[in-house]
Amino acid sequence: MSLLPVAAAVVGLVAGLWTRVLVVRHSVAEGEPPRRDCPHCGVPLPGPGRRGRTGGAGPRPAGESPGAGPARTGRPSSPERWRRLPWAGPLPAARCAGCSGRIGPPPLAVELVTALALAALALRAVPPSARSGAVLAGRPSGPLPELASGTELAAYGWLAVVAVALVFVDAAVHRLPDRLTLAAYLGTAALLTVTAVLAGRFDDLFRAGLGGLALAAFYLALFLVNPAGMGLGDVKLAAVLGTALGWAGWETLVAGAFLGFVAGGLYGVALMVLRRAGRKSEIPFGPFMVAGAFAALLTAL
Rank of each mutant, 00 (worst) to 15 (best):
M1G: 14
S2E: 14
V6E: 01
G12Y: 13
G12R: 13
A15F: 07
G16N: 10
V21Y: 10
L22D: 09
H26A: 02
P33H: 11
P39T: 08
G47V: 13
G49E: 13
R50F: 09
R50Q: 10
R51N: 08
G52Q: 12
R53P: 07
R53A: 08
A57G: 12
P61E: 12
A62E: 15
R72E: 14
S78V: 03
R84M: 08
A88T: 05
A93L: 08
A94S: 13
R95A: 05
C99S: 04
A117W: 09
A119W: 07
V126S: 09
P127I: 03
S129D: 13
V135C: 04
V135I: 13
A137V: 13
L144Y: 14
L144K: 06
L153V: 12
A155R: 06
W158M: 00
A163K: 07
A163D: 12
A165E: 02
L166M: 01
L176M: 15
L176C: 03
P177Q: 11
T181H: 06
L182Y: 08
A184K: 06
T188F: 07
A189C: 00
L191P: 06
D203G: 02
L210G: 14
L210A: 12
L213D: 00
F223H: 12
N226S: 14
P227K: 05
P227H: 06
G231K: 10
G233D: 08
K236T: 11
A238S: 13
E251F: 11
F258S: 11
A270T: 11
L271R: 05
R276H: 04
R279P: 08
E282C: 03
P284K: 02
F285R: 06
G286Y: 01
G286S: 01
M289N: 03
L297Y: 02
L298V: 10
